[in-house]
Design a protein around this nucleic acid. Structure first.
Lengths: 250, 250
DNA sequence: CACGAAGTTTGCGCCAGCACAACGTTCGCG
DNA sequence: CGCGAACGTTGTGCTGGCGCAAACTTCGTG
């Protein structure tokens, strides 16, 4: 709810400077996001005063793997796709980050460079700060604690990912990926739940270590069975329950 | 080097109480381990005074996935295998932890339960502390910083793991797994570098999401080519360079 | 509204690697 | 030192899902 407000405020800035301090932004709006929830007003204002805001179109690279970690980021609206590219040019999507989370916090894990590439999966609004401010903010009560909770969750997701890749069939992996998307970023629509950002079969194949072709085939089959409905870049899950069945072995 | 000393000291305790305070242990021995390297003598003594020491045989479960995270651990000697078990009973090995690292630090990531199962991959000597002490130690300068560096590294490894599973052929994955084992835990022997703890083909297959049979076949083929030498539970890599070639696409 | 780019569908053949099976080898233990 | 269990090897057949190819649909743009 708070986020919507922020977005409106920021929309006004769309045609102005793409990067500018956020002095205008009401600090109460950030209060409910986990990393900031335990901070007092003075601290929040301090953080906001030093933030840079920027609006990104879909498919823009926020930072690349191996680059020096000069800034860290807070996603206010939209979705971020975290991916790596192999020597042979294949892309692997590691995870999707929903709004309200910090990302690119290499510094918090003692790294000097970003370990992966972050690309906007939809239009996005992002605050960012120079990395050197991390230690300063880290002294604020609860800031790091909440951050590391997020890290812990992501580790859990990665573990699950590994187990899935290691043990499940393609159909189950794709079903799982879709369920995860719908759970984490789903939006209720008339005939089911829709993934809240544009997603192609190619993307799904990169999330599940399969191929565009296989994903396409399966989605077609599922559509025939009335489990999903999809159009270009949009996927609606109309029968989540049957998808859950498909996602489990046998 | 310091570790060897510790091990000797502890060996003396082998037949005494399996669990007892470590008051006797010279604090200077822990000084060089990353999590403690920036601590002063008083702090190290404080940490040691509250530690419990225990010796484990090979193949013993230290903690299980989902259990309440009552303690956190420091591996002084040996190796730990971190694994998860799927609903269908398949095991997946997530990573191996070498001596000198903290593990089971769910608390540091805001979790109440352990996210995976930890089993000793060899005989091991482990210190542990009640979880509630974490926050106390965390106030010591550098303790958490160094810990989170380790977490960062493990995240990197997991990412690599995911990319490997997603893009590489079985032969390359097994070659990679073997190279990683040899790099991280290798011990020089006469005719090459040996994995420093007992490892079965089954283990390797669980690390690479393949089967015992395939691993066995490949190791046999490699042995015929003079790349590795293996006997029961032991693997020696005699020609790492050619293994690197095998680990890369084409 | 015509064109190109991006996204999607579908058919077909093939092969890496799994399942199944049976046997050989090493180790620990009484 | 003999037995059983754990660990390792090898052969054979089969199939899921990938590679390749070609055509179709939707969208944005000038």
């Amino acid at each position: 709810m708070a986020l919507l407000l922020i977005v409106c405020l920021l929309d006004g800035m769309r045609d102005e400077a793409q990067q500018k301090p956020m002095a205008r932004l009401d600090e109460s709006l950030l209060t409910h996001l986990p990393p900031f929830s335990r901070l007092d007003n003075r601290q929040i204002r301090d953080i906001l005063d030093q933030a840079t805001s920027k609006r990104y179109n879909e498919g823009v690279t926020v930072f690349g793997e191996g680059e020096e970690a000069e800034r860290f980021f807070m996603l206010l609206d939209g979705y971020i796709r975290v991916m790596r590219i192999t020597d042979t040019g294949e892309q692997v999507i590691a995870l999707h980050i929903p709004s309200g989370q910090l990302f690119g916090i290499a510094r918090a894990l003692g790294r000097d460079t970003y370990p992966a590439t972050a690309v906007t999966a939809s239009e996005a609004i992002i605050l960012s700060w120079p990395t050197r401010l991390w230690d300063h903010f880290a002294s604020y009560d609860g800031f790091t604690t909440e951050t590391y909770k997020t890290v812990g969750k992501r580790i859990g997701e990665m573990n699950t990912r590994i187990v899935e890749l290691a043990t499940q069939q393609v159909e189950q992996r794709i079903a799982n990926a879709l369920l995860r998307l719908v759970n984490q970023t789903g939006r209720k629509v008339e005939d089911g739940i829709e993934v809240d950002f544009p997603i192609t079969r190619q993307d799904l194949s990169e999330m599940t270590a399969s191929t565009l072709h296989t994903v396409s085939r399966l989605l077609s089959a599922w559509e025939k069975d009335g489990i999903v409905k999809s159009r270009r870049k949009r996927i609606v899950v109309s029968d989540p329950h049957r998808l859950v069945l498909l996602s489990q072995p046998h």
